[in-house]
Amino acid sequence: MTVRQAGTVRRPSARTRRLAAAGLTVLVGLLVSTRWWDTHRFQVPVLQAAFPVVGALAVGWAALLLALRHRTAATVLAVLAALVPLLLAGGSLRSDTVPARPGDQVVMSANLQYGRADPAALVTLVRQQRVDVLVLVEVTPDAAAALRRAGLDRLLPQSAGSPRTGADGTMIRSRHPLQTLENAQVPGLFGSPVARVRAPSGTYVVKGVHPYPPAGELVAGWHRQLRDLGRWVRAQPTDEPLVLAGDFNSSSAHPAFREATAGLTDAHGAAGKGWVRTWPVGQRVPPFVQIDHVLQRGGRVVDAGSATVPDTDHAVVWARLRVPG
């Protein structure tokens, strides 16, 4: 009779290792596939927001199996799952822009996080980027007053929308004349003003966007608001340029966002900026998702970028757009 030496650790059998690899591969594949699950149930939108992290996990898992020369069907499936984020990442690096010229419009969006963002820093950024239109999200009456004292009215004297307490206030500020088209504040909903900008190079319509976040009891409302946004976009005339800017609380990994913004061009995507991360800024978890966007239809993208402002958990996003006259 053979006696096993005390303290010896028995290695898993080859069959056990194959089953474990297959199980993990199926799990990774399911996580990657959530990008196409158009549902607000079971907190799927929260998982979809983390798709860049899921994509990195899929690529890492496939690389590990290849490095270990794990010659099974699980490796093939892992490689196929990893190709999805790799192809999407490659597409995000392709640029489709036009050269800058006088008359281009710079549109910026800033979520002030309940009005806490540093007003002086934001006004400095507006001045540096020569912003023509600024969409302010979560702008409170106190924040609006602080921005006024910091000099925003001198740079962007025109306004549409209203400051509100909490997260409800959304405003459009402009250096050019504004014609307010929509300014209804629905009780319980975040503001979403619409205005026509009369720039010297031509007119265009701007909509400030801020649906609910897709979390907890608000997730069904988030899904409904994105559907409503898509219907609104499709109802707009196509003979005038259209710009949507704000905190969409969703990314390109959300099917509801992709459907709502079909036919619009994401400025950062057109500029080939790759993995843009606008939230959460300054938290224990580093930013991993772009939920703040500048989208356009009827024009061209010249450039796009982002910057940070103290005391808000969102990055500021901006885009330089060619608006046809």
Rank of each mutant, 00 (worst) to 15 (best):
V3P: 10
R4Y: 07
G7M: 10
A14F: 11
R17H: 03
G23W: 02
L27W: 03
L27H: 05
V28H: 02
G29H: 07
L30C: 15
S33C: 13
S33M: 12
T34C: 12
T39S: 15
T39E: 11
H40A: 14
R41P: 04
P45C: 02
V46H: 08
V46Q: 13
L47C: 08
Q48D: 10
W61T: 09
A63M: 07
L66S: 06
L68C: 06
H70E: 08
A74D: 06
A74Q: 09
V79H: 02
L83W: 08
V84N: 01
L86G: 05
L86Q: 01
L87F: 05
L88P: 02
A100W: 13
D104W: 09
D104M: 09
Q105A: 14
M108L: 14
L112I: 05
D118V: 10
A120P: 02
A121R: 08
V126P: 04
R127V: 03
R130G: 07
V131F: 03
V133N: 07
V133I: 06
E138R: 02
E138S: 02
T165Q: 13
A167H: 12
A167L: 11
D168N: 12
T170C: 05
R173Q: 07
R175Q: 07
H176S: 11
Q179E: 15
S192P: 03
P200A: 01
G202L: 00
G202H: 00
V205R: 11
P211C: 00
P213F: 04
P214I: 11
H223V: 03
Q225L: 01
D228E: 15
D228S: 10
R231Q: 14
V233T: 14
P237D: 08
P241H: 14
P241T: 15
L244T: 11
G246N: 06
D247Q: 00
F248T: 00
F248E: 03
S252P: 03
P255Q: 09
F257K: 00
F257P: 01
R258N: 12
A260S: 09
T261P: 04
L264S: 08
L264R: 03
H268L: 13
H268D: 12
A271R: 08
A271K: 10
W275P: 12
P280F: 14
V281T: 13
Q283M: 13
I291P: 11
I291E: 09
I291C: 11
H293S: 00
H293W: 06
H293N: 03
G298L: 00
G299F: 13
G299R: 08
V302E: 06
D303Y: 04
A304V: 01
G305R: 06
S306E: 13
T308R: 11
D311P: 03
V316D: 09
V316R: 08
V317N: 09
W318D: 02
W318L: 03
R320V: 11
R320E: 14
